[in-house]
Amino acid sequence: MSELTLTVMRLGFLAVLWLFVIVAVQVIRSDLFGTRVTQRGSRRDAGRAQQQAARQAPPQQRQQQSGGRGRRNAPTKLVVTEGTLTGTTVALQGQTITLGRAHDSTIVLDDDYASSRHARIYPDRDGQWIVEDLGSTNGTYLDRSRLTSPTPISLGAPIRIGKTVIELRK
């Protein structure tokens, strides 16, 4: 076999090996476990488009829209404001957030008054966030009232579980 062919093959093999490494790194870059950089951009674009639409829309329609479900006031994060986990935030991305002492909860509460599966917070079909008590011993409180059924959460309303208080924020 000629020297030239072997040299080309040698360099070719190294190139292919490195190409594989580079492709693998590219896969990792775009694979950040469910978070997508592109989406934030497109969401902002969409938001701008809607603002424009709202500006052009006739007044009563606009009222209807803003009164509808306060879509522009949709919460983007959940913040723990009191208790041992104070300061923890969880981005709201349409996933169900479970709260409780169980290890697999989204927010693991280290609280004597919390049950292992205490409550969950999830978006309904329209994107309104709902809090539901999962039959906890000591109950879940929204503002001052104990929850008996799945209840929509308004922005900034304190949800109290034992010593922990959480809020939805923009």
């Binding site: 492709v23 997508r36 969409a46 488009a49 879509r71 349409g94």
Partner: peptide, 29 residues
């Protein structure tokens, strides 16, 4: 109509096809 701030469930992509493509590559090398 209101495709703004509602964020649907971001289903984690399964990425099996990426795996298959890389696997073909990993056999060819």
């Amino acid at each position: 109509t209101h495709h703004t701030s509602t964020i649907g469930a971001i289903g984690a992509p399964s990425r099996r096809n990426t795996e298959l493509a890389l696997l073909v590559f990993a056999v060819v090398i």
